[in-house]
Simulated assay, not measured.
Amino acid sequence: MNDLFNIREAKTSDLDRCYEIERAAYAGDEAASKEKILCRIQQYPQGFLILENDIEIIGFVNSGATHHVQLSDEAFKELVGHDAAGKHIVVMSVVVHPDYQGKGYADTLLSAFIAQMQALKKSDIYLICQTELIHLYAKHGFTHLGPSDSLHGGLSWHEMSLSL
């Protein structure tokens, strides 16, 4: 992995590249719209971390904070119910551009994101993921909670959580 990288909070000027990565990495309806990504950057930049090398943004993780976690709530993906003071974090995307996948960047992003949420004194992090990604989150301490009721993108999902 190239050691020349930076992790920072997202800015609105990152929107086009983040949307490009989202569309490249996720299939069809699974990808967030440009409007949803912009909403996440504007409403909760401290929960939207960018990983960039010396050339471009290569990946990001974004989330919302809440007082009540409902992982299958599609409206929350538009930050309906988001409250920056909420102690629970719900991750929307952990995504690395396909050109950079398989090089450990998702691990780098997750480690930085977990540290950021600990620094913000959050109590836990929740997410849903595909079966093949359960191991990725498990090695960062997430617990598999079981199948999700979410039908996001017409796919089946698994719920996971990490106590901070």
Rank of each mutant, 00 (worst) to 15 (best):
A115N: 13
L120Q: 14
V61T: 12
L136F: 09
D107V: 06
S148L: 12
L38V: 05
Q46A: 15
C18E: 00
G102Q: 09
V90M: 13
H88K: 11
K34Q: 15
L79C: 07
S150Y: 03
V95W: 01
V94K: 07
E56G: 04
Y105C: 08
H97C: 04
A119L: 14
V96L: 03
K139V: 03
H135F: 12
G64P: 04
Q43V: 03
F48S: 02
V95P: 01
G153Y: 01
N62D: 15
G28A: 06
H152R: 00
F48G: 00
G102E: 11
M117Y: 06
L38I: 03
L109H: 05
T143S: 14
A25Q: 09
T66Y: 13
S33W: 10
A75C: 04
P45D: 09
K77T: 09
T66W: 13
V94G: 05
G86V: 02
G64V: 02
R17M: 06
G141D: 05
L38W: 07
T143C: 14
I37N: 01
Q42L: 13
T108H: 08
I134Q: 03
V80Q: 14
L15M: 03
G104Q: 02
N62I: 01
I50D: 00
K103I: 08
N62H: 11
E35S: 15
K139P: 10
G86W: 10
S33L: 09
T143D: 15
L151A: 12
D83A: 14
H135D: 15
S123N: 10
T108E: 09
G141K: 09
H135N: 14
L71E: 14
H144L: 15
F142S: 03
L109M: 12
S123T: 13
V96G: 02
I114R: 01
R40Q: 14
S123R: 05
H88A: 14
K87Q: 15
T108C: 10
L15S: 05
L79N: 12
G154V: 02
I114G: 03
Q118I: 06
H144A: 13
L71N: 12
V90I: 15
I41S: 00
N62A: 06
N62K: 06
L79E: 12
L136H: 07
E78K: 08
L109I: 09
G86K: 10
L79Y: 08
T131Q: 10
V80F: 07
A65C: 10
E52D: 12
R23M: 13
Q43K: 14
A84H: 02
Y137I: 00
V69G: 08
A138Y: 06
L133V: 01
P98Q: 06
H67A: 07
S156K: 12
